[in-house]
Design a protein around this nucleic acid. Sequence first.
DNA 1: TTTCTATATTGCAATATTACGATATTGATT
DNA 2: AATCAATATCGTAATATTGCAATATAGAAA
Lengths: 106, 106
Amino acid sequence: MKNDYTKSQQEMATLFKALGHPARVAIMEHLLKIDACIVGDIVDELPLAQPTVSQHLKELKNAGLIKGSIEGNTICYCVNEKGIEKLSNYFSGFHSKLNKQENKCC
Amino acid sequence: MKNDYTKSQQEMATLFKALGHPARVAIMEHLLKIDACIVGDIVDELPLAQPTVSQHLKELKNAGLIKGSIEGNTICYCVNEKGIEKLSNYFSGFHSKLNKQENKCC
DNA sequence: TTTCTATATTGCAATATTACGATATTGATT
DNA sequence: AATCAATATCGTAATATTGCAATATAGAAA
């Protein structure tokens, strides 16, 4: 019982946590699929009520995984590349270290 | 309010959720760092009591992110490459789609 | 300016997660 | 056999997440 978590560990955990719900994975994929950053028809794509979707969007935004901009009456969300980049980098680093490692057990 | 989540969305969410806690990120990184699949000295690396660490290890194992093998009195955990591969593939796909997309707003 | 439409916020119930002390389990040591 | 060491499981308290109805907000349309 010793070390506290590093800042990086905490940041990564926050990102992962934000994706740790199928609704939020679905939102990310939908934002990626429809090339335009279409808005609240995300609600129509999910088996959830509008306030619940709004809540999930907020979590994704707080985690830095999406961005939203107001467009008149409407809000336009899209993927925040920075967040994706962090995740993608993390795993490529992880993966390359894994290859160098010879598993001594398991 | 329409579609249910796909199997893939659910699977990915499960993987992300498993990493959505700094202790579990720290465990993964530690297993990667010490080339050998060292055991319960993970407990000494974390600011948590042994039962709590055990619980986190179980979650990671259930999610398919680590493997454990009994070694006499001891248990040897190590990273499960399959899980990492899934995550790493997911993001590289995601990332390459992102590049093709011209953000119309945001 | 009233009404409509899109979205966010609030309040709250149901459920899940996190942490840990106490205890169980199992192989190793004596 | 008795004890020790490493780990898992159980029970439970504290906290966080999820989902939604009701309501608020703010720009657009009438």
